[in-house]
Design a protein around this nucleic acid. Sequence first.
DNA 1: CGCCGGATTGAGTGACGTCAATTACTGTGG
DNA 2: CCACAGTAATTGACGTCACTCAATCCGGCG
Lengths: 232, 232
Amino acid sequence: MPETLIPTAASAVPPRASSIRPPRPTPRSRVVGENSTLLYEGGRNRSLYRVVDGCIVLSQLLDDGRRQITDVLGPGRLFGFTVDGRNIATAETLSIARIEPLGDADLNATNPTVASELKTTLQRMQVHATLLGRKTASEKVASALVELARLFNRTGRNGAPARLGFHLHLTRADLADWLGLTVETVSRCLNRFKREGLIDFSHPKTMRVLDPERLEATAGFTRHRTGDAARP
Amino acid sequence: MPETLIPTAASAVPPRASSIRPPRPTPRSRVVGENSTLLYEGGRNRSLYRVVDGCIVLSQLLDDGRRQITDVLGPGRLFGFTVDGRNIATAETLSIARIEPLGDADLNATNPTVASELKTTLQRMQVHATLLGRKTASEKVASALVELARLFNRTGRNGAPARLGFHLHLTRADLADWLGLTVETVSRCLNRFKREGLIDFSHPKTMRVLDPERLEATAGFTRHRTGDAARP
DNA sequence: CGCCGGATTGAGTGACGTCAATTACTGTGG
DNA sequence: CCACAGTAATTGACGTCACTCAATCCGGCG
């Protein structure tokens, strides 16, 4: 099946008509079910996709099964980069996701949009490396919450962001694999933050940030020695 | 001083005439001294450089001084990527280094060479994220040795690679900051490997791999679920 | 209601970090 | 060439943060 995106699992969920309303149907955009591994391929070069809606993570495995989630993608992000025709990472959907293949004109990494996405991705990866290598468990979990809140900020019906509530698409295990921790440690941190009034959640996936300042302080701050590239 | 590369430290070492013989002087290539922080900038867009020779690392800091080395660059690699005109990371030389600014035609990220470099860098970052998040201290140190051996493989006078000897440009502290460990742990691992006959070193920076197979086995193996993009 | 996967919680342990003392290098000045 | 100072590396003793193991709880679903 050339040119198609091939989910391995249950996949291709026919969305209950109400739950997803196509936000102005994009040419050839597709809906993929939760928990599918995306073996995106595509004859010639058709490997780049844009996340329109939902949450997709990129991951790698060690041969004994240890998993590292290397990036968490939300609306707008691209995935499917290749080196020598091989995908760089495995992509999995953590929610029903809508994705859209990039048009032929955009497939090339020399496309400005793609090039720019590559650079910001690189930057995110570097910040995450610092988190993985140098932050404590609490700092890691706090950082994750800050980032996910930004990424999946629930917009109220008026279009304005609701008061810092967001849907956590990741399970505790996913968070652990993203942050280089164990499920138990993630759980303990989250519940400590809850006791301390930084966040709140009744359902494990429905997060609300109560004290953004203190949460961000707990997350720590990344900098690097100066270096404006263009200018004064 | 527009358009120049500005080292902060002692810098601009006038190389003792013998120690560096320009390998056919590249247009506008420069020699930078050891242990300089490179505040590369450059009026318009002049921010991309290629490492011709030597070792340069990219790093980030947390506000309390914890450091993470996000990438180690050897001959051929590019550095100086920017997002919104800001450098993504700080670059420091770990040896006397020869670098070469990319020509005007190449400055843009849409240049195929640059785009391709961005992708392989992204891939390296992902593999390193897995190392940081999921590998043990021993696996980390072994992985580092394997990678650095490849990167700085000392070529014998006949041009063929000498028997797995290489110069370790990083100090124990640099290794620690790259691998997310402490100096002491790095040192213990290295000396254990030495006792076990995997490697040897008399001088702390002069490494030799004695048993490549066992070293690579100790390093562990990264994979990710399949996914040829362009395909049979 | 009973099952099952995810999440929480507690108790105990171990890998790696911290602290401190010693040794090995490197460079400088006499 | 040697003395000395300063930094890097090693090594040991000890402490702790996060992992492991295990029990329990909770929520969604047949």
